[in-house]
């Protein structure tokens, strides 16, 4: 019935060769796509096999591990021991302070590096390059790595965590600030420069108003991130809630550990809520 319908319609009697060539064209294009898909699927499969071979990962452990972690969470950690909340307040505040001070440090340093790295404000392109490389390097090394090195050098405690957070923050904020600065409107700079303003006046009158929104939202975003990082830095001895968590797990006090995790969870949500409020007010 379908075929009949085709024959009735006037333009549907192409010669076999034309039909064939159109189908070949479809085939050819389909092949290109399939080849590229096969290439990617193949590459991913190879990577997966190579990784399974290298790590000795057993796909069964996915099922097994899920089961084990559920058992662990629901029998060993549950219910959380809420009586330790009192002794958790001080580490929780430490985590908060570390995140905040770390953020301020990275904001201050990143402001300088950002201006130096932005193509339109940098005094010289070599300075911009160097500044970019420094931030790129700091960005690619996780805060925990800095914390590990600093713990052995400066010692245990929140100061170490603060510096580690500050360092890795410079990597992110330095790049972000530079990008925001590069996107500002040159005409306004020219306008203010034309009035004979000096460098500081140009920054204050022309750059800052355009930079403010990006500056505030990136800095607050970093504060959100810092809370997460600060919470885990303690695992390597850099103070705060993580340190308490590590301690209670080492002592097999899993119900206390559960409380610490809930506390971290609550702290993250609280700070995210506050930064969202501040962002709303300022922007």
């Amino acid at each position: 019935m379908r075929q009949e319908a085709l024959k009735v319609s006037p333009s549907s009697q192409p010669s076999m060769t034309k039909k064939q060539s159109k189908y070949d064209e479809y085939k050819r294009r389909r092949k290109i796509l399939l080849k590229s898909q096969a290439y990617i699927v193949g590459l991913i499969s190879l990577l997966a096999l190579w990784s399974i071979w290298g790590t000795g990962f057993n796909l069964l452990s996915l099922v097994f591990g899920t089961y084990e972690i559920l058992v662990f969470i629901f029998t060993d950690m549950f219910p959380p021991d809420l009586s330790v909340i009192g002794s958790l307040i001080s580490p929780a505040l430490d985590t908060l302070y570390m995140s905040y001070v770390g953020m301020v440090i990275s904001v201050l340093v990143s402001l300088i590096l950002g201006v130096l790295a932005a193509n339109n404000l940098s005094p010289h392109w070599i300075v911009a390059r160097v500044s970019r490389s420094v931030t790129a390097f700091l960005r690619s090394v996780p805060a925990v790595v800095w914390a590990i090195i600093l713990v052995s050098g400066i010692g245990l405690g929140p100061l170490t965590g603060t510096i580690a957070i500050g360092l890795s923050g410079i990597g992110i904020l330095g790049k972000a600030y530079a990008e925001v600065l590069e996107s500002i409107d040159e005409n306004q700079l020219e306008g203010v420069r034309a009035t004979g303003a000096n460098w500081f006046q140009v920054i204050g009158q022309a750059v800052w108003p355009q930079f403010k929104a990006g500056f505030v939202s990136w800095s607050l975003y970093k504060l959100d991130m810092n809370i997460r990082e600060a919470a885990i830095l303690g695992l390597v001895g850099a103070g705060g809630l993580g340190y308490y968590l590590q301690g209670s797990i080492n002592l097999f006090q899993y119900k206390e550990a559960a409380t610490a995790i809930l506390m971290i969870f609550a702290l993250i949500l609280l700070v995210e809520y506050m930064t969202a409020k501040i962002r709303e007010r300022i922007i």
Partner: peptide, 11 residues
Amino acid sequence: EVEEALDILER
């Protein structure tokens, strides 16, 4: 199926 679809597109 492909040939039919191409035909319809022509129409």
